[in-house]
Design a protein around this nucleic acid. Structure first.
Lengths: 353, 353
DNA sequence: ATGAAAGCGCTAACAT
DNA sequence: ATGTTAGCGCTTTCAT
């Protein structure tokens, strides 16, 4: 398509200086006379010369690229995080290498290896499922790494996490305040770090209300609509006394909604439902879902900031950011006549092609 | 975090061979004795040596990385394409550099420049809004490029496009077959290439049915839920005679759904609605949306295949793939009692964290 | 079958 | 203020 690249040498020759001087100009280094700088810049403009990031990386041992590992980029939860990551990274002149693991734990390690220590300056990893030990072994090779939504037991790696205990607590407490006493929990995958935390919050709210936690009111499932639908079906078949459900995430909650619709239970009159994450979908189903809002884009942005701090060895290295979720109340728990938002629900932030 | 890297030289010394021989081994080149190969491989395993992709790129002028430019990765339409791209790229040992333009036309050029000619082997660009001339100027620098959902007038750049004329035709024809004669079109952005094609299909169906196209039954809007809601409100206020709506995409269709709910029009009894793309959301709203299915993941996969063909100068270079959309009929056009899927609706493919 | 030499395009000392 | 010399880690000729 195009012929030989213009190199720093070509520019130097055309400008009648050594290629060193050109290097100084493009890197804004001092000790170049204004006239020379001018001339060099003109030549650069004329030739359309652009320094090769590859050659540069070879000598600087920096790539200005960070890796982003997610289970599934088409999941709205992670695509929002990715957008936050991208925005900040781009504004700081970093590129983002995207990697999906396809929800496959062993792929996490493969991807991390493929992302090669020398090819990125750092990695941000979300929604990990693999074991601590293996992950730590894989992550230790990177100059810097930030975890999203998970902590290692020894807290060696900086992380940004949601206060999921609080989230689970708020969601459950809300249901209790609405007068429910039989509150089930559709709990997501057993391996989920966040799921375990939300369960703690759920238990805490029950305990505070003087209610005994019923072991079999908790039903695990894949974090999908279908997963939620089947789990709800099972749970309610065994425990028809349940009148409210706290769900692992909004997709699971939509599954619960579907099961209720299928068996003719009205929401919220016969069954109150709370989701988690507050993805766009939560506002679009009927009834709209009460959900625990998680600021995903911001989490992505903050993860990059943390990572760049580590990469550049900035002073105040903080190694944990805890994000606070907020309950957004909608019709799925309120009774249609009283449907209002406690929190100001943001004007729909959905974009499309 | 970790000390000095193991280089090809270290391996050579430890194995007692020249570093050239090591290079041969890692590249599976011939002319290495089996014993030497063994020994070198042992040392590689022991030291954990991995060749530097940067150094390699500098000499081969290949990066094994492709750029992917999308307007917004959190839009389900594009995240699905991204997943297709990622899958295939990864299987062929290519990395993907993700770039959002934030729906901003001028950012498209910036991003393309940032993606630098020498940093990626090729680019896949989706949902472009910028003018042909500027884009072509920016794209000509790359070794290879593939467009998704757009063609340049001169067809210089290979592309993968949906047959949107057909899609618009099928959607409209379906509505006409259901007995509607006043069919409006909520048309999305005026600058959208796909939108223009869908409009053609819409007109074609009307003409075939012997109906005159009413200029002001077409209402443009941003491709979002809110955009669709406002456009529907406007259109129906001016034309209460309209009983069916074809919508630019599913988000817009959901907006239409919302407006109908707000003013008490029942769907599909008082208003039939057809969306486009068939994103997961289409199956989750009530009533579920009839929509034109676009195989987005496959489009992403195919775009990579085309791109790698170009990069590697494979023989049969095809420069256009036209993907055929299929209408999936759901309750938003059928009347609740007859709600069935004409096409087998895939078991919900939604994944979550 | 193996090694030696050159060079990819650049930055970073060290001159001058 | 500018030029000279190395060398980043690798692949690619070209010898042997």
């Amino acid at each position: 398509m195009s012929r030989r690249r213009v190199t720093i040498d070509d520019v130097a020759k055309l400008a009648g200086v050594s290629y060193q001087t050109v290097s100084r100009v493009i890197n804004n280094k001092p000790y170049v006379s204004e006239t020379t700088r001018q001339r060099v810049q003109e030549v650069i403009a004329e030739t359309g010369y652009r320094p090769s990031p590859i050659a540069r990386s070879l000598v600087t041992a920096r790539t200005a690229t960070i890796g982003l590992v997610v289970p599934d980029i088409s999941n709205p939860y992670f695509s929002a995080i990715a957008r936050g990551v991208e925005q900040v990274a781009y504004s700081k002149n970093y590129n983002v290498l995207l990697c999906n693991t396809g929800e496959d734990a062993s792929r996490e390690l493969e991807v991390l290896h493929a992302l090669d220590e020398r090819y990125v300056d750092g990695v941000i990893v979300c929604g990990l499922r693999e074991e601590d030990a293996l992950l730590q072994e894989a992550l230790v090779h990177f100059r810097a790494a930030v975890l999203v939504n998970r902590r290692f037991a020894d807290e060696t790696i900086p992380a940004i996490v949601v206060d999921d205990v609080l989230g689970g607590y708020l969601a459950t407490q809300h249901l209790l305040q609405m007068g429910h006493t039989a509150v089930g929990f559709i709990a997501g995958p057993t391996t989920s770090y966040s799921g375990a935390k939300r369960l703690q919050g759920y238990e805490k709210a029950l305990t505070e209300a003087g209610l005994e936690r019923q072991i079999d009111w908790v039903q695990h499932c894949p974090p999908t609509v279908v997963g939620g639908q089947l789990a709800t079906q099972t749970l309610l078949a065994n425990h028809p006394e349940i009148t409210a459900l706290f769900c692992y995430n909004d997709l699971v909650a939509v599954g619960a909604l579907r099961d209720c619709a299928a068996v003719g239970r009205r929401v919220p009159q016969d069954m109150a439902i709370v989701g988690y994450d507050d993805i766009m979908l939560a506002t679009l189903v009927s009834p709209p879902l009460t959900s625990c809002h998680v600021p995903r884009v911001e989490m992505g942005s903050q993860a990059v900031s943390m990572l760049l701090n580590c990469i550049n060895n900035e002073t105040d290295r903080c190694d944990e950011i805890v994000v606070t979720p907020e309950l957004v109340v909608r019709a799925s728990t309120m009774g249609v006549d009283t449907a209002v938002s406690v929190k100001q629900t943001a004007v729909l932030p959905n974009r499309a092609h």
